[in-house]
């Protein structure tokens, strides 16, 4: 019973309002666009012989990006378009997706030190576990993937690992 409850908890889908997610993403992108604009402004003082310097094009991009992300934010928060929209975004198996992302980040960042055999082995084990794989296959397949990756990249393609 205990196992069922914990499994059910892990499998619970995370449901977010579509417009809410849109608002969050647009705020993030708006912030990035403003940062981009702030970085682009000093470039305007640099001239490259012509009228258009290295800062003009990024400035244009920043302005359009700020306008579009602001528009998306307004629309997702407006009563007329956003708040009455009942659509939901479902993140199925959200915890496992998060675990998967953490495994990819952790093993990926240690790729050079773990090498072409152990890094794929460990990562494959983690990802297969996140994909609900249990039992013998979880023990047998990842080392095979590690071996295949090692043969392909190191022996056949000559990729160098320190």
């Amino acid at each position: 019973m205990k196992k069922t409850i914990s499994a059910a908890l892990l499998e619970t889908p995370l449901k977010l309002s579509f417009r809410g997610l849109e608002a969050v993403v647009s705020v993030l992108l708006l912030s990035l666009s403003i940062l981009y604009l702030l970085e682009a402004l000093p470039l305007l003082s640099v001239t490259s012989g012509g009228k258009v310097g290295p800062g003009n094009f990024p400035l244009g991009i920043a302005c359009i990006a700020i306008a579009l992300t602001s528009l998306l934010l307004i629309m997702s928060l407006s009563k007329r378009y956003g708040l009455h929209d009942a659509r939901k975004v479902t993140f199925d198996r959200a915890l496992f997706v998060l675990f998967g992302a953490v495994i990819i980040i952790l093993i990926g960042s240690q790729l050079a030190s773990l090498g072409a055999f152990f890094a794929p082995w460990i990562m494959a084990t983690g990802i297969m576990f996140c994909c609900q794989e249990r039992g013998l296959r979880l023990l047998v397949v990842p080392p095979c993937i590690g071996g295949a990756i090692y043969v392909l990249f190191v022996l056949a393609l000559g990729v160098y690992f320190p």
């Binding site: 990562m123 397949v141 993937i145």
Partner: peptide
């Protein structure tokens, strides 16, 4: 199985990038 596919794709991605 998707689990095997996902593992292979992830490993090729990171090794390919490296």
């Amino acid at each position: 199985p998707r689990s095997i596919l996902a593992s292979i794709v992830a490993c090729i991605c990171l090794m390919g990038a490296y």
